[in-house]
Design a protein around this nucleic acid. Structure first.
Lengths: 217, 217
DNA sequence: TTGCAATGAATGAACAATCATTCATTCGCT
DNA sequence: AGCGAATGAATGATTGTTCATTCATTGCAA
């Protein structure tokens, strides 16, 4: 054991496998956001990570696997985030809905780089069954939770004319549509504004459980 | 002149410039839908068009310009389509809204190939200012029209608590979100179902101008 | 009509650049 | 010393672009 502490403690040259993989996935997100999926190469990713050329093949075997693992990471982070939010919200279905909406427009999920990457994967999803499966699973799980909360609220609040499934589909669609605004039009749309728009939808849909919509800009 | 009609009348070897360019843009849409943006090459496009390697540089100078012109085509076709739909709908703002929603989920706009291409461009838009400008302009024009119709309906129908801008933003977001469903989950979402979801939103937002929402699946 | 240049659209082989992947070597930790 | 992590030059495949050539069409002369 060396006498001196020595070394830049900030960045070890050799790191545990999982840590390096995570580092490369983060670099992939930055590269896809900065250069687009088409211009993201092994070189742009490894350079973004501050590591060498061959590092990706060492940890992920191929570029394809790196991209799949990146999508899987985004997908799992999304699920963990809303699961946590729902748990914290407790039993009340209205609280659960509000928590899921809030989560959709806050870090770590709603980050401009990550939004760009989501859309990049969606754009490739028609030609890549693996992407489509991961996306479909994320969507299914999220929407099932949304639907459950809507169903509970319809029951508990006596909204007999509402179809929980349709409301969940509407809310989910609105969310991804607002993500698009945040991505392509960040000057006209903020995360807080996007959240308010979703809450307005909840307000007219479940008027007895959410504060009424006002003429906000 | 010529005795025999001669020639395969179906495909002339030399065609007017504009016709060839259109042919190549259609081939680009098919290739991006089939192979994704990353795996769309000069070879896949020209082969999809049934033409030779050099043909794209002859007509578009570069791959970049081909892609930009493809996005511009989609954007202009979208605008022409909704302009026509709004014109046909006449003066009534509720009719105009319904017409724009219907147009969003019908050919030629709502084609699965074209949706894939839209998302591919959106995914690259953060890294390509040219893409972002074209997308932003399309969105702005469309939303201005939507907003106008909402504004008229708010005035005429006495919906004093509604903000036309927010309603337009909600509807627009819902539309692109439903496009995502149609792209990634075509088995669970149809164009007609998507249209109904939008109409349900209009029904709860403008209850005196649209038929009430029922418990449809 | 028939023959014959002239035109320019279309081709596809060739080229240089870029790409993902490999692997012999170096480096750092125990 | 020994071992695994990391490197980066090397490799072959793929890419966008170029350009000499081919070929259908058109205009003109006889």
């Amino acid at each position: 054991m060396g006498k001196a502490a020595l070394k830049s403690p900030a960045r070890k040259r050799t790191a545990p496998k999982q840590e390096r993989q995570q580092q490369l996935i983060q670099a992939t997100i930055r590269s896809v956001a900065k250069n687009g999926m088409s211009d993201t190469t092994m070189a742009t990713v490894s350079s973004e990570a501050g590591l060498s050329q061959g590092i990706i093949n060492l940890h992920f075997q191929s570029k394809d696997r790196l991209l799949v693992e990146t999508l899987r990471f985004l997908s799992e982070q999304y699920r963990e985030t809303w699961e946590k939010a729902v748990f914290k919200a407790g039993d009340d279905p209205a609280d659960r809905l509000a928590a899921m909406v809030a989560m959709d427009f806050k870090a770590p999920v709603c980050d401009r780089n990550k939004l760009a990457v989501w859309f990049a994967f969606w754009g490739e999803s028609k030609s890549r069954p693996t992407y489509r499966k991961i996306c479909a699973m994320r969507d299914m799980e999220y929407r099932a939770e949304l639907q459950q909360a809507c169903h509970d609220l319809v029951d508990q609040g006596g909204y007999q004319n509402l179809d929980a499934k349709s409301v969940a589909a509407s809310l989910s669609a609105m969310t991804s549509g607002l993500w698009l605004d945040l991505l392509t039009n960040p000057r006209c749309m903020t995360r807080e504004h996007a959240r308010r728009i979703c809450m307005s939808y909840l307000a007219i849909t479940f008027p007895r459980h959410f504060p009424g919509r006002s003429k906000q800009p």
